[in-house]
Design a protein around this nucleic acid. Structure first.
Length: 280
DNA sequence: GGACCATGTCTAC
DNA sequence: TAGACCTGGTCCC
């Protein structure tokens, strides 16, 4: 289940396996048959990630990145996943929307299941999608001033603003909860009520945390002094699991102050925070 | 086997 | 704000 770090990691992994090489594309499930047929056999250019959106370029001419050709636009949504493998692709199991496989050795494949979006776009259409997104902390071209301009004059809560992809692209429910905890900010505080210094620290922290997320392919947010080893506490067992402070820890004691972590629904998602550490 | 949950987003009312 | 959509894991019977 993906936040921006998953998508950037996928872009790198897919580019490493398929970039600059002819690719076989198919849709075993059938729901992307037309799009797959259009790129099948062509050379993949590069992969691009912007927030939670993934783009795979199929240029028409040598040396282009895809703008003169087509892009496969993928959004994993809540459930989508890519399974990457080396070697020959196995017989399809389950609902595979898109299968990519190398046309030449060394063999590699990638199976896409359950995406929210899998469609073919022109370069102009891709630009329209990314143009609607706020700055992405994982992108070198990101301008945090654009986010600050929205946040600093908004009465909306920071919890909601951080999840709004038009404000900041790539942050999801885990990073939003964790970064607000790490900066002692109550999630219900309004955007206009944080200082510029606080925002700059939050942005820099997001960039660092998400970059670590790309590197390890999971979300870890606890500082060295709060790791299970440092504190002599049992590691988190529950799921896909990195070590976190508040996300899905409702009712458990805060690693820092010991108060019970709280949860409440906010805009159809579960919010988590520590009432002891995070101040209005 | 079924209910429920999930790191997401869009659309209709 | 509710419902829809896409899939898989977990927990309970």
């Amino acid at each position: 289940m993906p936040e921006g770090h998953t998508i950037h990691r996928l872009a790198a992994d897919l580019e490493e396996r398929f970039g600059g090489r002819p690719v076989r594309a198919s849709s075993p499930q059938g729901r992307f048959e037309g799009g797959a047929a259009l790129v099948d056999g062509r050379t993949m250019g590069g992969a691009d990630a912007h927030g939670k959106h993934l783009f795979l370029g199929f240029p028409r001419f040598e040396g282009e990145d895809g703008d003169g050709g087509e892009w496969i636009h993928i959004h994993l949504g809540l459930y989508g996943s890519f399974a990457l493998g080396r070697g020959a692709p196995p017989a399809p199991v389950g609902q595979i929307r898109l299968r990519l496989a190398t046309a030449e050795a060394p063999p590699a494949y990638a199976d896409l299941r359950g995406p929210n979006t899998c469609e073919l776009l022109t370069g102009a259409e891709k630009d329209a999608v990314t143009g609607r997104l706020g700055p992405d902390p994982l992108r070198a071209d990101a301008d945090p001033e654009r986010a600050w301009a929205r946040i600093s004059r908004s009465r909306t809560t920071l919890a909601a603003l951080l999840m709004d992809q038009k404000v900041v692209a790539g942050v999801g429910n885990v990073y939003r909860a964790e970064v607000l905890f790490r900066h002692n900010i109550d999630p219900y505080r309004a955007g206009r009520d944080i200082t510029r210094a606080e925002w700059e620290a939050v942005w820099a922290d997001l960039a660092g945390l998400m970059r670590e997320g790309v590197r390890h392919n999971r979300i870890d947010t606890v500082r060295p002094e709060h790791t299970p080893e440092a504190m002599g506490r049992p590691p988190r067992v529950d799921d896909h699991g990195g070590e976190v402070y508040v996300y899905r820890r409702a009712g458990m004691p805060c690693h820092v102050c010991g108060q019970e972590i709280r949860t409440a629904p906010l805009a159809a998602r579960n919010l988590f925070w520590c009432p002891g550490c995070q101040k209005p």
